[in-house]
Design a protein around this nucleic acid. Structure first.
Lengths: 148, 148
DNA sequence: GATAAAGCCGAGTGAAACGGTAGGGATTAA
DNA sequence: TTAATCCCTACCGTTTCACTCGGCTTTATC
């Protein structure tokens, strides 16, 4: 039940793009530097995000990455799905429950279903826009505390 | 964000013991057979559960495993903690947040905290007793459907 | 048109975790 | 005494994770 760095880094990268939403493309190097992530690794994550239609790119010099939509319209759920393939905690929850042959007699399954629905609720209702606002607020508070 | 077999099997084993609560010890072999788990593997899980004070044992012939308390008083949270060490989805949530050096500036952390609290709520409020009742009910329904 | 900065892509790799096995020892009811 | 049971340590093959490498294409700028 651990969150992968893939999900975490990817989420942070998307928030970074959201901070510059409407300002033109941001280069991979800039995102990597700001977030302290290896460029080569981040590139892989960006590829997943691009395939999922969450980010788009412009190539050549002055090129970079941009969000395809407003940060408020991008849910954390779809972002994580793009990065990790699935957010399902087990094979027996979600669409293809047939993977687990004894799904209907497993005593843990009711728990999994409940847990999954709660998790999905949070991931679905939280948007990249919110995370971005929170982040900006937080940085302001730190700055303020530092000066006083 | 996948549930380990350790957690799943362990939970199922505890439910199995709960089904026989008050009837004396159940042997490892019996639990393993009923749940379709390798004996040697299950033994490891049982040890973790014993160390955590969730199950106790009697040795020698006719020995076996028993729950230390009523199924209703054992939460899924403590069971999973015993089996998996921790149910934290990231290092920056929970008691020792210092593991993550930039915890206070990470844009993903607020999400993690929210998610963790929702997850813990479910795991805390769900008891082994409930899972056991659900399981018995479910088996009854299947039996009923099969006969008609 | 050359150049340099950017993205695009597939393959590879070391370490750790996962899931499970093996084998022997200690305890105890019958 | 014996056989069934729990107790313990070590090991091991596979997969996943996190990350790297090297070469390619595209494009703004000089």
């Amino acid at each position: 039940m651990k969150f992968s760095t893939r999900g975490t880094y990817g989420l942070r990268a998307v928030v970074e793009l959201a901070k510059h939403y409407g300002e033109g493309p941001v280069s991979l190097a800039a995102v990597a530097a700001e977030q302290g992530i290896s460029e080569a690794y981040l590139e892989q994550l960006m590829r997943s995000l691009k395939n999922a239609g969450i980010v788009k790119t412009t190539r050549g010099k002055t090129g970079g990455y941009l969000l395809t939509r407003e940060p408020q319209s991008i849910s954390v759920l779809e972002t994580l799905r793009a990065l990790e393939g699935s957010t399902d905690i087990a094979d027996c929850v979600g669409a293809d429950a047939s993977v687990c042959e004894n799904a209907c007699t497993c005593s843990a399954r009711p728990l999994f279903l409940k847990l999954q629905s709660r998790i999905n609720a949070v991931l679905e209702e939280t948007t990249i826009g919110e995370l971005t606002e929170d982040h900006i607020e937080q940085k302001k508070r730190i700055e303020h505390a530092r000066l006083s």
